[in-house]
């Protein structure tokens, strides 16, 4: 009864002290674990919600004032929110957007043709949206979002749920569009392929804080490898640090890599060592003297694995 009259309200800050500038025409990746604040940031930048503190300027406008000119120049695509009407074919929705954005007829027809060909959905323009596959629907959403040739495009997980082919096609399209039209694109994605192949700059959010702002390559340290060793007995990381004389931040517990496991669990006995090439043999020799090794392997550093470690707090960028 108490909850009925006095609901319990908890305030949670989704973003803290986030500050950055984006150059026109750039392609920026916004990444972070679930709940890191990526979508909130996009909502603020696109004017859907105001920041509780601080200010934002996009194309010289205060987004939350949502002036008509601002709305004409931006696009927001949210992978989990359909913008087109479920029971109508995409063409009907595009016709309405044509009128809303007052796109000249000839230009409108050209754009629909170009975009539908580029994304390989021309044959589905007359099909009800609900009858399309997820990938086809997402491509239609993207066409609908950029028909007016926006100067700034916010993409929130546009490749979510897409198969490899559809995601690749969408990525290719975004790359071409960004290069050809010089639109500024801010993309959030959990798919590191999207980030690696498209973005010249990455912003990493962790628990609402901007912890990295730079080139994706800047996260990879040159010449570093990851040595993965699985011991018969679960070792103590501090003890491993002492015997190998490696700092503790270069040693971490290996996490389960099962894709279906949403909460990564420690892998029994598995430990990662981040090393230079010439450190690998000496470290292995020391480890073999101190315990029984069941399995070992050397991994190249992928952006994905680096970012995963950043999210887990194992690396300070």
């Amino acid at each position: 009864m108490q909850l009925l009259f006095k609901p319990e309200i908890q305030t949670h800050f989704a973003l803290k002290d986030v500050s950055f500038n984006v150059e026109p025409g750039s392609f920026v990746g916004l990444i972070g674990a679930n709940g890191a604040g990526k979508t909130t940031l996009l909502k603020i930048l696109s004017g859907l919600i105001p920041p509780t503190e601080g200010s934002t300027r996009v194309l010289g406008y205060n987004p939350f004032e949502r002036p008509l000119d601002f709305r004409r120049k931006i696009a927001l695509v949210m992978g989990q929110k359909a913008q087109l009407w479920w029971d109508l074919p995409a063409n009907d929705a595009f016709d309405l957007l044509h009128a809303i954005y007052d796109i000249p007829d000839k230009l409108y027809r050209e754009r629909v043709q170009i975009l539908s060909e580029l994304l390989d959905v021309k044959q589905h323009l007359q099909t009800q949206i609900r009858r399309l596959s997820l990938g086809e629907r997402m491509k239609m959403e993207l066409i609908g979002a950029i028909l007016h040739w926006p100067s700034v495009i916010f993409l929130d997980e546009p490749t979510i749920g897409l198969d490899v082919m559809a995601a690749a096609k969408l990525r290719e399209f975004l790359k071409v569009f960004n290069q050809r039209e010089k639109s500024t694109i801010i993309l959030t994605s959990h798919n590191m392929d999207d980030i690696e192949r498209l973005c010249s700059r990455v912003l990493i959010l962790r628990a609402g804080e901007l912890i990295y702002d730079g080139k994706p390559a800047g996260l990879l340290r040159e010449g570093e490898r990851r040595l993965k060793v699985r011991f018969s007995l679960v070792p103590d990381l501090e003890e491993l640090s002492r015997i190998t004389r490696l700092p503790l931040n270069q040693i971490s517990v290996a996490m389960s890599e099962r894709a279906e496991d949403p909460d990564l669990a420690p892998e029994t006995g598995g430990v990662y060592f981040t090393l230079k090439q010439d450190q690998i043999v000496p470290v292995l020799q020391i480890l073999m003297q101190h315990g029984t090794i069941i399995d070992m392997g050397i991994e190249e550093q992928s952006l994905e694995s680096v970012i995963q470690r950043v999210f887990e707090g194992g690396i300070k960028p």
Partner: peptide, 19 residues
């Protein structure tokens, strides 16, 4: 076409999609 007319047309198609 004016967006209001286009919205009317679109709305009509939507409501009559299932006759």
């Amino acid at each position: 076409m004016n967006w209001r007319l286009a919205a009317l047309k679109n709305g009509f198609k939507d409501y009559t999609a299932y006759r």
